[in-house]
Amino acid sequence: MSEPIIELHELTKKYGKFTAVDHINLSVQKGEIFGILGPNGAGKSTTILMMLGLTDPTSGTVQVCRINSTRNPIQVREKVGYLPEDVGFYDDMTGIENLLYTARLNRIPEANARTKAEELLERVGLPVDTQKKAGKYSRGMRQRLGLADVLIKQPEVIILDEPTSGIDPAGVQEFMDLIRQLREENGLTVLFSSHHLDQVQQICDRVGLFGGGKLLAEVNVNELQNEEHGLENMYNRYFGGGKSHE
């Protein structure tokens, strides 16, 4: 494989006595879709926040695009798009206005931003010329707008934190197809955090199993593809049977 684009080295985050993330070592290659799989409270979100420099690690280092996220968070955030869990928008602005605001925060010139925003709205399957305020959007539409919002800064890496929670199954399928397309067309690296085993299995190249703040295993999905229920067995081995489908 090519060069690693995300590198975690002995990354640890403690809240008082509680260890949320416990000495994680991980590297993600360029162009990969890497899944972070684990139950709630496994330390997935905290790890993501540290990658973005939104919270400081207690010890260890994070490098994204060869930049230290803790020391130079601004430069990292120029290259990384982050879609938080249950993303929110300014309710009294339309979808495109929200996108343009993000574009301005990323210092994208106004003229480019508008064409780019329209292009992206079309891409994620939202109506372009509408006066509909973002406050009236359904959960699924918000999530699509969130994806457009992440892409407007033309990132090298996108980090999606539970992007499919609260969307209906058909919507989830479209969303996943979209992510796969993006990877193929733009060569994006995608970090996909989820607790849905089937979604991770369907889309990711490699999966990291998180539990109790530790990286329990790294799995290559293609290799497991040959075995029936390969990842599922693995998941069950770590987190107990029967919980794999929520």
Binding site: I74, E78, P84, V87, G88, L105, G146
Partner: peptide, 14 residues
Amino acid sequence: SKGTLSRILSQPIH
């Protein structure tokens, strides 16, 4: 509570 805070702060701004 609107969920915009984490989105705005993940942009390249101080």
